[in-house]
Lab assay of single mutants.
Amino acid sequence: GAPPLPPYSAGGREVTMKKGDILTLLNSTNKDWWKVEVNDRQGFVPAAYVKKLDSGTGKELVLALYDYQEK
């Protein structure tokens, strides 16, 4: 199953993602919540729920390892 959710501390809205989604990583300075862009929406997802990909394009991409439903 998915890892436990860290307390929400990102101070911005969250976004929903599905397992297998490829998201653009915008900011990973917060260790628990990373800012991503998905379907032209920006928001935060739990860092433990995604994995960085080596895209080779200069853009940082992450793979959704679990479904996440915004609150």
Rank of each mutant, 00 (worst) to 15 (best):
G1M: 09
G1E: 15
G1T: 14
G1I: 06
G1F: 07
A2R: 08
A2I: 12
A2Y: 11
P3F: 05
P3A: 05
P3H: 05
P3Y: 05
P4M: 08
P4N: 08
P4L: 08
P4C: 07
P4S: 09
P4T: 09
L5Q: 06
L5S: 07
L5V: 09
L5G: 04
L5K: 08
P6R: 01
P6H: 02
P6E: 03
P6A: 02
P7Q: 11
P7S: 11
P7W: 05
Y8S: 13
Y8P: 07
Y8T: 15
Y8C: 12
S9N: 12
S9L: 11
S9F: 10
A10L: 13
A10C: 12
A10Y: 06
A10N: 07
G11D: 14
G11S: 12
G11Y: 03
G11C: 14
G11V: 11
G11K: 08
G12Q: 07
G12R: 07
G12L: 10
G12I: 08
R13W: 08
R13M: 13
R13H: 14
R13E: 13
E14V: 14
E14T: 15
E14A: 14
V15Q: 05
V15K: 02
V15I: 14
V15G: 03
V15N: 04
V15M: 15
V15F: 12
T16K: 06
T16V: 06
T16P: 12
M17I: 14
M17T: 03
M17E: 00
M17L: 06
M17H: 01
M17W: 03
K18M: 09
K18R: 14
K19I: 05
K19E: 05
K19T: 06
K19S: 06
G20R: 02
G20N: 05
G20V: 00
G20W: 04
D21T: 06
D21L: 04
D21I: 04
D21S: 06
I22G: 00
I22E: 03
I22R: 04
I22K: 04
I22M: 06
L23W: 03
L23N: 01
L23T: 01
L23I: 06
L23K: 01
L23M: 15
T24L: 15
T24W: 13
T24I: 14
T24A: 11
T24N: 08
T24S: 10
T24M: 10
L25G: 00
L25K: 01
L25P: 00
L25R: 01
L25E: 00
L26P: 00
L26E: 02
L26D: 01
N27W: 06
S28M: 10
S28C: 09
S28G: 10
S28P: 05
S28Y: 07
T29H: 10
T29M: 11
T29A: 12
T29Y: 08
T29L: 09
T29E: 15
T29V: 08
T29F: 09
N30V: 04
N30F: 05
N30M: 08
K31A: 13
K31H: 12
K31N: 11
D32F: 15
D32P: 01
D32G: 08
D32W: 15
D32E: 11
W33I: 01
W33P: 00
W33H: 01
W33L: 01
W34R: 01
W34A: 02
W34I: 04
W34G: 00
W34S: 01
K35S: 07
K35N: 06
K35M: 15
K35G: 05
K35D: 04
K35R: 11
V36E: 01
V36A: 02
V36K: 00
V36Y: 01
E37Y: 06
E37T: 07
E37D: 07
E37F: 06
E37Q: 13
E37H: 05
E37G: 07
E37P: 01
V38I: 15
V38S: 13
V38N: 12
N39R: 12
N39G: 15
N39L: 10
D40P: 03
D40I: 04
D40Q: 12
D40L: 09
D40T: 10
R41G: 11
R41E: 13
R41M: 15
R41V: 15
R41A: 12
Q42E: 13
Q42S: 12
Q42V: 14
Q42L: 06
G43T: 04
G43N: 02
G43A: 04
G43V: 06
G43K: 02
G43H: 04
F44A: 02
F44W: 14
F44D: 02
F44C: 07
F44P: 00
F44S: 03
V45H: 00
V45W: 01
V45C: 04
V45S: 00
V45F: 00
V45Y: 00
V45T: 02
P46V: 02
P46S: 01
P46W: 03
P46D: 01
P46H: 01
P46E: 00
A47L: 01
A47I: 02
A47G: 04
A47K: 04
A47F: 02
A47P: 02
A48V: 11
A48I: 10
A48W: 05
A48Q: 09
A48E: 09
Y49S: 03
Y49R: 04
Y49D: 01
Y49F: 10
Y49A: 04
Y49V: 03
V50D: 00
V50E: 00
V50P: 01
V50A: 03
V50F: 04
K51D: 05
K51G: 06
K52Q: 09
K52L: 13
K52V: 12
K52T: 07
K52G: 04
K52W: 07
K52M: 11
K52A: 07
K52S: 07
K52I: 11
L53A: 03
L53V: 10
L53Q: 04
L53T: 05
L53W: 07
L53R: 02
L53C: 07
D54E: 14
D54G: 14
D54T: 12
D54A: 11
D54H: 12
S55C: 11
S55P: 10
S55Q: 11
S55T: 15
S55H: 11
G56L: 14
G56K: 12
G56S: 14
G56D: 15
T57E: 15
T57F: 10
T57I: 11
T57C: 10
T57M: 13
G58P: 09
G58T: 13
G58W: 08
K59F: 11
K59C: 08
E60G: 08
E60H: 11
E60C: 11
E60Y: 10
E60A: 14
E60S: 14
L61K: 09
L61D: 04
L61I: 09
L61V: 09
V62W: 05
V62H: 03
V62Y: 07
V62L: 10
V62T: 02
V62Q: 00
L63R: 08
L63A: 04
L63K: 06
L63I: 15
A64Q: 00
A64R: 01
A64S: 05
A64H: 00
A64P: 00
L65F: 03
Y66G: 02
Y66C: 04
Y66V: 05
Y66Q: 04
Y66W: 13
D67S: 07
D67H: 05
D67W: 03
D67G: 07
D67Y: 04
Y68V: 02
Y68F: 15
Y68S: 02
Y68D: 00
Y68T: 02
Y68L: 04
Y68N: 01
Q69V: 13
Q69W: 11
Q69Y: 15
Q69R: 10
Q69F: 14
Q69S: 14
E70D: 11
E70C: 08
E70P: 15
E70I: 09
K71N: 14
K71H: 14
K71P: 11
K71G: 15
K71A: 13
